[in-house]
Design a binder for these strands. Sequence first.
DNA 1: TGGGGTTAT
DNA 2: ATAACCC
Length: 463
Amino acid sequence: MERAEAGAPGGWPGALEPDEPDDLPWFHDELEPAGSSSCRVIVHVDLDCFYAQVEMISNPELKDKPLGVQQKYLVVTCNYEARKLGVKKLMSVRDAKEKCPQLVLVNGEDLTRYREMSYKVTELLEEFSPVVERLGFDENFVDLTEMVEKRLEQLQSDELSALTVSGHVYNNQSVNPRDTLHIRLLVGSHIAAEMREAMYQQLGLTGCAGVASNKLLAKLVSGVFKPNQQTVLLPESSQDLIHSLNHIKEIPGIGYKTAKRLEALGISSVRDLQTFSSKILEKELGISVAQRIQKLSFGEDDSPVTPSGPPQSFSEEDSFRCSSEVEAKTKIEELLASLLNRVCQDGRKPHTVRLVIRRYSSEKLCNRESRQCPIPSHIVQKLGAGNYDVMAPMVDILMKLFRNMVNVKMPFHLTLLSVCFCNLKSRNTAKKGTIDYYLTPSLSTTSHTGKRSFKMKDCHMED
DNA sequence: TGGGGTTAT
DNA sequence: ATAACCC
């Protein structure tokens, strides 16, 4: 609904001159309804060095020491003590120890406690407003638009005029108390402060927050004041914020590949991307990517905060060297055992299983191959209680997938194995009144007999 | 580069 | 099934 039809006989002059090259981004002169009703208030919440915080909560003796969390030979994250001493994220253990010999390392290859804490944070935020989108384990977006509206209705006019910001204002921009957008964002900043306070009081976690009118800007502004602080962006400063980025790769949504292709076109700064021909960009990257990233370069992002809900998939992976089928099977059993525990806790049942490998060979970054297949229904039904019954047949399936990818009669060298359960169903997924409902034994009124007898006359069409 | 996740094609 | 993106 945001998008004007490209070929629509709109009232704008350019439509009457089809021969005129139109290289200006089409969205640039889009009329905002200007009514504040279309403006959202979004908060991005970003925990400080999350894994390190979880480790310091688990073992308070680590609190005032420089701490790094290690996976294989990498320090994937570290606390601020360690950062002061020169340790960076994703630094090799060798470099980190060299920079900082006193660095304390804990192993963070098992994500269980991080994952659990991560969901506690999301659930806490969902208590404020149910529209929470997770991004990784340590970031969440919350759409505060409705909450802000409700709070504004409650506020008296004298309270309204005395309203101040909680935390920083980007660029130190002055607030206009008569600007309804300013006021709404200020209310958002108070909600953000309450969220951070609740995270600290209830979970012992600190983090940053950014409040702005869309996800892109909220995310960018949350990182401006860094540990344990928050910042609100007022609309007049959005161009300053986006131009504070030194390279297009810093725009969330423009990844490694796209950045390389843009660089090949001579685009490296945000302004380069803003002013580049839309037509050529669409031809190079496809219309979808081109339009999306060019809008991002102006700080425009109409993507909604999509509630994440429960995870779509569970996976366990381990990077290690593997050159025999026996090694592979042992690792697969290990990964599977952990996964079965997780799936058991979740309550839903996966209907698809996938095996992922990474081959050694020519270090093509991110070369992974996968094979997947449906989990036979008689196995699906056993999931949940006795995982011992499902272990053997699942290993069998996974080894078939393995041999489908890897010719075990030839020498091979893998550097990673991963098992993934997906296509999760609550098995209440069959809705009442549908054929599936009556064909699902656990839902049918006669199912408790254990017999697969589906008599339509026994079923009621209530609801 | 680890050990995860998501969506689009 | 892969390829891109995110952390």
